[in-house]
Design a protein around this nucleic acid. Structure first.
Length: 584
RNA sequence: GCUCCGGUGGUGUAGUUGGUUAACAUACCCGCCUGUCACGUGGGAGAUCGCGGGUUCAAGUCCCGUCCGGAGCGCCA
């Protein structure tokens, strides 16, 4: 009986300093190269790969002959420095190799459905259809890309804990089985067995619990919290996702912004080594909408709009003469007609009536609406040779949002997006916005957001003018977080509910527990929630948050690996008092 | 619910104005090979082109429908 071997270190951690040592390695066969009289095995574990040499004079040569990709083996051998001409600079262990004395197959493996090995040996992974990847997620997770992303995610979370602990924060867990509050997003419901016909809801965020923790005096709370929203998915949206949720008492908006940008800078430094200049730019909602047409502008490129409403006002170009807003984007290229039409389709999808254009060629405006462009336009925009002007006119909101979508598309198409991390704060959001469909005012952030006290007197008389103490945290054009100072006085919270059309009875029924908490001495407080998945995806340079989530759902909300959602048997349904209608 | 894009051996791709045996790389299987590191080399197997229908002498290719996937719109306090 051979004496049992135990792993001595990770394959990927072998270095020249280990030369001469006997080691035991356990891992997967990344690749096998059979030269006939000599076999090389690249052995892999989570830390990387190392080359193992098996020569024909060893008893284990026959075993090494059988081994295939992704088999799990244990190897005992001796570390040896490689001669200079035999080193491999593409891998960190490339200056050493392990001469095998013993090789034991721990598991055989089927041929993998797609290549696993490339990135581990320093090459680029082949792109594989995401459907295939998700169905074979275990094998996909075995690839280096996912290893790197999930470890980055861990490092981000660990850094968050270190920083917030240092700053005196306490992490508290709040429940996942909660009460449905049918405001905002659609809830996931969980039927109750003990009370058939009644339902829990999975939390869309820990919002109300953290506010109650503030009333209870915890002062500084945070949680890495899973949140659930039953809405359609996107590249940056999953039905269950992770927030960094935090809340502080006796603070102002500036205190929160300061703490959070220091946290962001710390996390980015600790995980990537990049130093973010502080403070981050702070732009008002009105500014970002007017200049970039988005409340989450991507500042990795310029291409700002100019307002030319005045120049066209009352002029001969009827479509623009009486428009509430006219905005122009001066694109530093002569765009072909076809491209302008594609951009127009984007503008129209965001509600623009059209996308007007003109080119500046040979010192003159030509094409499109060039003959209608008043000379006074030059007072707002600097025109230079080789530009294409793109113009939208209409209501303020539709104009800026549609031109904002065009700006973003141009940033991508023209390759204007600079590498790096661009953060900013968007502040002074409106408290309320008019809901066309329901003919009433609705909250922009959530109903617990405090109005800016300077605007409080307008709450009933001119609600649209009231600014909120609300702030969004934007990272490379994605909303990485959002927060607000909350209402901490019961009377103001009731006023707010009234303004939202939530009567006293309804307020009591749905939010009585919050109102009661507020009546027992609530401190001024505020907080923020970061979209952790988006934050990590941006750090990793990934387009989709599915790349930083181990077991994500696909576009249809299905988890194809295990097959969720799935039917359940009638007995299970009966237990919770449910019957599924055949027609649904 | 809507718009757009895609679906060809295990994987990644090519496939022209419709034309004969659906091509290439890689992976896989079997040989040969003692310094490779995407080893090399010789051979082999592997796709009814997502599915159904239509047009045509002839469809991977054109048309219609449908399924699956992705990007976006709506939606997401």
């Amino acid at each position: 009986m051979l004496k049992p071997m135990r792993r001595t270190l990770y394959c990927g951690n072998l270095r020249e300093q280990h030369a001469g040592q006997s080691v035991v390695l356990e891992g997967w066969v990344n690749r096998r190269r059979d030269l006939g009289g000599l076999i090389f095995i690249d052995l892999r574990d989570r830390e990387g790969i190392v080359q193992v040499v098996v020569s024909p004079d060893r008893a284990c040569f026959a075993e090494a002959n059988k081994v295939r990709s992704e088999w799990v083996v244990r190897i005992e051998g001796e570390v040896r420095s490689r001669p200079a001409e035999q080193t491999n600079s593409k891998i960190k262990t490339g200056r050493v190799e392990v001469v095998a004395n013993r090789l034991e197959v721990l598991s055989e493996a089927r041929t993998p459905p797609f290549p696993i090995d490339a990135a581990w040996r320093g090459e680029e992974d082949q792109t594989v259809n995401e459907e295939v990847r998700l169905k074979n997620r275990v094998m996909d997770l075995r690839r280096r890309r996912l290893h790197d992303n999930l470890r980055l995610r861990h490092k981000v979370i660990a850094a968050i804990y270190r920083f917030l602990d240092q700053e005196g924060f306490i992490s508290v867990e709040t429940p996942y089985l909660t009460r449905s509050t049918p405001e905002g997003a659609r809830d996931f419901l969980v039927p109750s067995r003990l009370e058939p016909g009644h339902f829990y809801a999975l939390p869309q965020s820990p919002q109300l619990f953290k506010q109650m923790l503030m009333v209870a005096g915890y002062d500084r709370y945070f949680q890495i919290a899973r949140c659930f929203r039953d809405e359609d998915l996107r590249a940056d949206r999953q039905p269950d996702f992770t927030q960094l949720d935090l809340e502080m008492s006796f603070v102002t908006q500036d205190d929160l912004i300061d703490l959070n940008e220091r946290l962001a800078a710390y996390v980015v430094r600790e995980t990537t080594g990049v130093e973010l200049p502080l403070p981050f730019p702070r732009l008002t909602y009105a500014e970002v909408m007017n200049r970039y047409g988005s409340d989450k502008p991507d500042l990795r490129f310029g291409l700002e709009f100019s307002d030319v409403t005045q120049a066209f006002q009352g002029g001969e170009f009827r479509a623009f003469a009486s428009a509430e807003t006219v905005k122009v984007l001066a694109v530093p290229r002569l765009l072909p007609r076809k491209e302008i039409e594609e951009l127009e389709a984007i503008a129209k999808s965001k509600g623009a009536a059209g996308l007007a254009w003109a080119r500046i060629e040979n010192g003159a405006l030509t094409g499109g609406i060039s003959k209608f462009i008043p000379s006074s336009l030059r007072e707002q925009v600097t025109l230079t040779e080789g530009q294409t002007l793109l113009l939208v006119a209409g209501s303020w909101r539709k104009t800026v949002e549609s031109l904002g979508a065009v700006r973003l598309e141009l940033g991508r198409r023209l390759g204007l997006i600079e590498p790096g991390f661009k953060f900013l704060w968007v502040v002074d959001f409106p408290l309320l916005e008019w809901d066309e469909d329901n003919g009433r005012w609705t909250y922009m952030h959530h109903p617990f957001t405090s109005p800016n006290l300077d605007d409080l007197h307008l709450l009933e008389t001119d609600p649209g003018q009231v600014r909120a103490y609300a702030y969004d945290f934007v990272f490379n054009g994605s909303e990485a977080g959002g927060g607000s100072i909350r209402i901490h006085r019961r009377d103001l919270q009731e006023r707010m509910f009234a303004q939202l059309g939530i009567g006293p009875a309804e307020a009591q029924e749905k939010f009585g527990f919050l109102l009661e908490a507020l009546s027992y001495g609530a401190p001024p407080h505020g907080g923020i929630a970061w979209g952790l998945d988006r934050f990590v995806a941006n750090l990793a340079g990934e387009e989709s948050i599915r790349e930083v989530i181990a077991f994500p759902k696909n576009k249809e909300g299905k988890e194809t690996l295990t097959g969720a959602p799935a039917l359940v048997d009638e007995g299970q349904l009966a237990t919770v008092g449910l019957v599924v209608r055949g027609d649904s």
